[in-house]
C-alpha cells in the first residue's frame, strides 16, 4: 500500500520532504522543539536503525524531562496509547517516518 502511494509521489512531483512535521502534539513549545530536534538528530544519525534512533530519543528525553518516556519510530504502524497530558508528540520526519513520543509512568 505504501509503495503504491509512494510511486506516484516519485513520478508526479519530485518533492522530497526532509523537514519534521508535527502531526499532533500537546507539549509545551519548548519541549516540542526539543523533542523535534532530538528526533531529527536521532533519525539522521541512525537513518538505518530505527531502534537505535528511538532509544536515543527516549534516553535524551528521559534525561531532560524525567523518566518514563516512550518513543516509537517507524514507517508504518498503528498505535493507541495512554499518555500523561502535555507529553505527547506525534510527528513525521523525512517524508516517510513517523515518530511518537509520549510519557506515561
Amino acid at each position: 500500500m505504501g509503495d503504491e502511494v509512494a510511486a506516484p509521489g516519485g513520478t508526479v512531483e519530485k518533492v522530497i520532504h526532509t523537514y519534521p512535521l508535527i502531526r499532533h502534539s500537546d507539549m509545551s513549545e519548548e519541549m516540542r522543539i526539543e523533542a523535534m530536534e532530538l528526533s531529527v538528530t536521532a533519525c539522521e544519525k541512525f537513518a538505518a536503525n530505527n531502534e537505535l534512533a528511538a532509544r536515543m530519543v527516549k534516553e535524551s528525553m528521559d534525561k531532560k524531562f524525567g523518566a518514563a518516556f516512550h518513543v516509537v519510530v517507524g514507517e508504518s504502524y498503528g498505535f493507541e496509547i495512554t499518555y500523561e497530558c502535555t507529553t505527547i508528540c506525534y510527528m513525521y520526519f523525512g517524508g516517510n517516518q513517523a515518530i511518537v513520543i509520549w510519557k506515561c509512568s
Binding site: 500500500m1 505504501g2 509503495d3 503504491e4 502511494v5 509512494a6 509521489g9 520532504h17 512535521l21 502531526r23 499532533h24 517507524g74 514507517e75 508504518s76 504502524y77 498503528g78 498505535f79 493507541e80 496509547i81 495512554t82 499518555y83 500523561e84 497530558c85 505527547i88 506525534y90 513525521y92 517524508g95 516517510n96 517516518q97 513517523a98 511518537v100 509520549w102 506515561c104
Partner: peptide
Amino acid sequence: PPPRATYGSTALQCIIFDYYT
C-alpha cells in the same frame, strides 16, 4: 494522579505522504 489521555493513530506511508503534501 496526573491527568492522562489516550491518543491513537495509524502511521502509514500513504498517510504520511498525504500529510506532507
